[in-house]
Structure formats: C-alpha cells, structure tokens
Computed example of a mutant assay.
Amino acid sequence: MKTVHYRLAFVVLALASSVTSAFDPSPLQDFCVAINDPKAAVLVNGKFCKDPKFTTANDFSFSGLNIPRNTVNRVGSNVTLLNVDQIPGLNTLGISLARIDYAPDGGLNPPHTHPRGTEILVAVEGALLVGFVTSNPDNRFISKLLHPGDVFVFPIGLIHFQVNIAKTPAVAFAGLSSQNPGTITIADAVFGSDPPINPDVLAKAFQLDNKITATASSNADEVIR
C-alpha cells in the first residue's frame, strides 16, 4: 500500500511541472546542473552550470525520502524540501518537491507562504485539515479535510497551513512550481524578525495590547535561538 502512496506522490511532481513556465525562467538547454566552480561554468538563474559532458545520475537524484522524519518540536512537523540545493539538476527546471511529516493529534505545518511557487499537495497518511486565505480585501478562508490519496492546491503567495487531526502520524508530499519556492512562516517573520518589529506596530496591526506582542516577540526569539 505504501508503494502506491509513494508513486502517487511523484504524480504530484509531474503535475506541478505543468505550471512552471509562468514563474521560473524557461530553460534554453536540456539542463543546467548547478556547480560552484565559476572557472568551469556559466551563470544561469543564479547558479553556475556544470559542463554537460561531466553530469551524472547523482546530479538528478536523491535517496531517503521514504524515511520518516522527527516531528518532536514546537509545532509537531518536519518539512524535507528537495530544491536546487539538494538536487543540482533542478537548476532552471522550475520545480521542487517536499515531504512533510506530522506528529499525531495536532502536528502542524504552520501558516506560511511560498513567494515564488504554487504548491500541490497529496496526503499519503493520516487526516489533514488544510486551507489557505485569499488576498485582500476578501480574505476568504478555503479549507478541506484530506484523507490518503486526496490532493489540494495552494496558489502562489497565499498564506496556507496543514494540521494532522488523526491520532496517528501523517505524511504528505508536495510539488512546487519553482526550483527554489522560498518559505515565509508568518509567526516567525512577524514575531521573530531580527531586529524585532516595534511592539507598538504589532499591537496596532493585531489589535492587541503591546505587552502581549512584546512577550510574543520575546518568546519567538527564544525559540528561534
């Protein structure tokens, strides 16, 4: 059964590739394996390209995505992102992949955004409550409960999350329409910035007492450290 699940996860990767041309630049060659040696390469999409005749299968592969990750942390989740930094052959191809592990009964991939990519997620294990919020002025919350085999799309740039409501661990795989989609975790960005945002600004933005926002910023800083 798990073999079927993992095959389904890679279907997500294929689906994500259909929207890549709208965001990352279209490649002008078969591939551009990222390399850090400027003497043996040219700069494309912020990475140096290895001479094609020296590329190997290892430039296009990664092993171990079937291994469960540790979810004992403050939010109860663990994201294993495979972007151009882990798979150099992804450079210029406009696609990446992630495995997300969730702890039982509340494991959370907290509200965040991907500024450079749309995400398509397939649930493999557990029961995931997922959702995103549309942009101003509507700020509509669109949500769904996912079971194994269910798929959900998070549009580029919108705040979204997943939480495991099952009593057992959960796993999902996600394809993203960028070789480096980026992640902005809302709570960390707002309350854990360096240097911190003025508590008076946060208090007014969130309509809270500035003592509360100051405490939240202090706590976030301690967690990040």
Rank of each mutant, 00 (worst) to 15 (best):
Met1Trp: 05
Lys2Phe: 05
Tyr6Ser: 05
Arg7Tyr: 03
Val11Tyr: 09
Val11Ser: 05
Leu13Phe: 14
Leu13His: 15
Leu15Gly: 11
Ala16Ile: 00
Ser18Val: 01
Ala22Met: 07
Pro25Cys: 08
Pro27Met: 08
Asp30Trp: 09
Cys32Met: 09
Cys32Ser: 08
Val33Asp: 09
Val33His: 09
Ala34Pro: 07
Asn36Cys: 03
Ala40Asp: 12
Leu43Glu: 11
Asn45Leu: 07
Asn45Glu: 13
Pro52Asn: 09
Thr56Phe: 06
Asn58Thr: 09
Asp59Tyr: 06
Phe60Cys: 08
Ser63Ala: 09
Ser63Arg: 14
Ser63Leu: 05
Gly64Trp: 12
Pro68Lys: 10
Arg74Ile: 05
Ser77Asn: 12
Asn78Ser: 15
Thr80Pro: 00
Leu82Asn: 07
Leu82Val: 04
Val84Gln: 15
Asp85Val: 00
Ile87Asn: 11
Ile87Lys: 14
Ile95Met: 09
Ile95Ser: 05
Ser96Gly: 02
Ser96Glu: 09
Ser96Val: 03
Ala98Ile: 07
Tyr102Ala: 01
Tyr102Met: 05
Ala103Leu: 09
Pro104His: 08
Pro104Asn: 07
Pro104Met: 06
Asp105Leu: 12
Asp105Phe: 13
His112Cys: 06
His112Trp: 13
Pro115Asp: 03
Pro115Ile: 01
Thr118Cys: 03
Ile120His: 08
Val122Leu: 11
Leu129Lys: 14
Val130Asp: 09
Val130Lys: 13
Val130Thr: 14
Gly131Ile: 04
Val133Gly: 04
Ser135Gln: 15
Asn136Gly: 04
Pro137His: 11
Asp138Pro: 00
Ser143Ala: 07
Lys144Thr: 11
Leu145Gly: 02
Leu146Phe: 11
Val151Asp: 06
Phe154Trp: 01
Leu158Phe: 13
Leu158Trp: 15
His160Asp: 06
Gln162Thr: 10
Val163Cys: 08
Asn164Thr: 08
Ile165Asp: 08
Ala166Gln: 06
Pro169Lys: 14
Ala174Cys: 04
Leu176Phe: 14
Pro181Gln: 10
Thr183Cys: 06
Thr185Arg: 06
Ile186Asn: 03
Ile186Pro: 03
Asp188Ala: 14
Val190Thr: 13
Phe191Gln: 10
Phe191Glu: 06
Ile197Tyr: 11
Asn198Leu: 03
Pro199Trp: 11
Leu202Tyr: 13
Ala203Lys: 05
Gln207Phe: 00
Gln207Glu: 10
Asp209Trp: 01
Asn210Phe: 00
Asn210Ala: 01
Lys211Leu: 02
Ala214His: 11
Thr215Glu: 15
Thr215Ser: 09
Ser217Phe: 00
Asp221Leu: 02
Ile224Lys: 15
Ile224Arg: 15
Arg225Gly: 04
